[in-house]
């Protein structure tokens, strides 16, 4: 990584990152927030803005595979990182299993929180340090608020995918 020194406030900074699998180079203001760059500069409006202060999870994206709040991250901090948004989950026209499970379990009403919920759920299933029991999953998902109160069905969707993965991997404890 190159040392960058004096950037006056108005000067743009070049940032190279991987976005939904594709390497891209963007010019951003030093104070540009990742969420705003995704939505307004790159046209990826699937990631939502709720509170803009880390308190609701609507803006959840993956940075190097970990769920983060895009509203509390500078775009310039993503130099060299892999950012995945809700637009990057489906592969070759097939929904991610968590996306499909949200449909099957009716895990939303208005849908505003859903992209963030789904990004958190996908990261959660990949993070094997987090146990799979219902209480732990609830706790691990508490950074995503749903004003429609779809929590029960969101939980059911996550646990359904977990069970089916286990069955495919040949069992073991859930």
């Amino acid at each position: 990584m190159q040392e960058t020194t004096a950037h006056p406030p108005e000067a743009a900074v070049t940032v190279r990152l991987t976005l939904n699998g594709d390497p891209i180079t963007i010019e951003v203001s030093p104070s540009a927030i990742l969420l705003d760059v995704l939505r307004e500069q790159l046209g990826l409006t699937g990631t939502k803005k709720g509170c803009d202060h880390g308190q609701c999870g609507a803006c959840t994206v993956h940075v190097d595979g970990r769920a983060m709040n895009a509203c509390l991250r500078l775009a310039v901090m993503c130099e060299g990182q892999a950012v995945t948004t809700i637009e990057g989950l489906a592969e070759a026209g097939h929904l991610h299993p968590i996306q499909q499970a949200f449909l099957d379990h009716d895990a939303f009403q208005c849908g505003y929180c859903s992209p963030g919920q789904i990004m958190s759920a996908v990261a959660l299933l990949e993070d094997h340090r987090i146990a799979g029991d219902v209480a732990t999953v609830r706790e691990a998902m508490s950074g995503n608020l749903c004003r429609c109160g779809a929590y029960q069905n969101i939980l059911a969707a996550i646990q359904d995918v977990r069970l089916r993965r286990h069955a495919q991997e040949g069992g073991g404890d859930a």
């Binding site: 990584m1 040392e3 960058t4 950037h7 900074v13 203001s29 030093p30 500078l74 310039v76 130099e79």
Partner: peptide, 29 residues
């Protein structure tokens, strides 16, 4: 808005900080 610098060593980070009294480190943000 603010200006930006990316530090590539501990010593450089401290130099940037000392050079500009109004500056702040960002870690997680």
């Amino acid at each position: 808005t603010f200006a930006f610098a990316r530090a590539d060593s501990v010593a450089r980070a401290v130099e940037h900080r000392q050079a500009e009294p109004g500056s702040a480190f960002v870690a997680g943000g």
